[in-house]
Lab assay of single mutants.
Amino acid sequence: SEEELEEFAKEVLRRGITIIVNGIRITEVEIFVKVLREILEKR
């Protein structure tokens, strides 16, 4: 749901943790923004 997305976004921003994806360091915020864009483009 959109509320869950908002909560996830807030949690990500609070933690600001960097994770490893395919050997490249990407912040969770960047991943969230990318996923959010993909979701919005599909609408």
Rank of each mutant, 00 (worst) to 15 (best):
S1Q: 07
S1M: 11
S1P: 05
S1E: 07
S1W: 15
S1F: 14
S1L: 14
S1V: 11
E2K: 12
E2N: 12
E2C: 10
E2G: 09
E3W: 15
E3V: 12
E3M: 12
E3A: 13
E3L: 14
E4S: 11
E4V: 12
L5P: 01
L5Y: 05
L5S: 02
L5V: 04
E6N: 09
E6G: 03
E6Q: 13
E7Q: 12
E7P: 01
F8N: 02
A9E: 02
A9G: 02
K10Y: 09
K10H: 06
K10C: 07
E11H: 07
E11W: 08
E11Y: 04
E11N: 07
E11Q: 08
V12K: 02
V12S: 03
L13S: 02
L13D: 01
L13P: 01
L13Q: 02
L13A: 02
L13N: 03
L13V: 02
L13T: 01
R14P: 00
R14W: 12
R14L: 09
R14N: 13
R15P: 06
R15A: 11
I17A: 10
I17M: 11
I17Q: 11
I17N: 06
T18D: 09
I19G: 00
I20C: 12
I20T: 11
I20A: 04
I20Y: 11
I20W: 09
I20K: 07
I20D: 02
I20P: 00
V21L: 13
V21F: 14
V21K: 04
N22R: 05
N22S: 03
G23M: 06
G23L: 10
G23P: 03
G23E: 03
I24C: 06
I24R: 04
I24V: 11
I24L: 13
I24T: 09
I24M: 07
R25K: 11
R25P: 14
I26G: 03
I26V: 08
T27Q: 06
T27C: 05
T27A: 04
T27I: 05
T27P: 08
E28F: 06
E28Y: 06
E28H: 06
E30D: 11
E30S: 14
I31V: 13
I31M: 12
F32K: 01
F32R: 01
F32C: 00
F32I: 07
F32Q: 00
V33K: 03
V33L: 13
K34W: 07
K34A: 12
K34D: 03
K34I: 06
V35I: 14
V35A: 05
V35M: 11
L36W: 05
R37C: 01
R37F: 09
R37I: 11
E38M: 07
E38L: 11
I39W: 15
I39L: 14
L40P: 02
L40W: 14
L40H: 03
E41S: 11
E41D: 11
E41F: 08
K42M: 12
K42A: 13
K42H: 12
R43Y: 15
R43D: 07
R43L: 15
R43N: 10
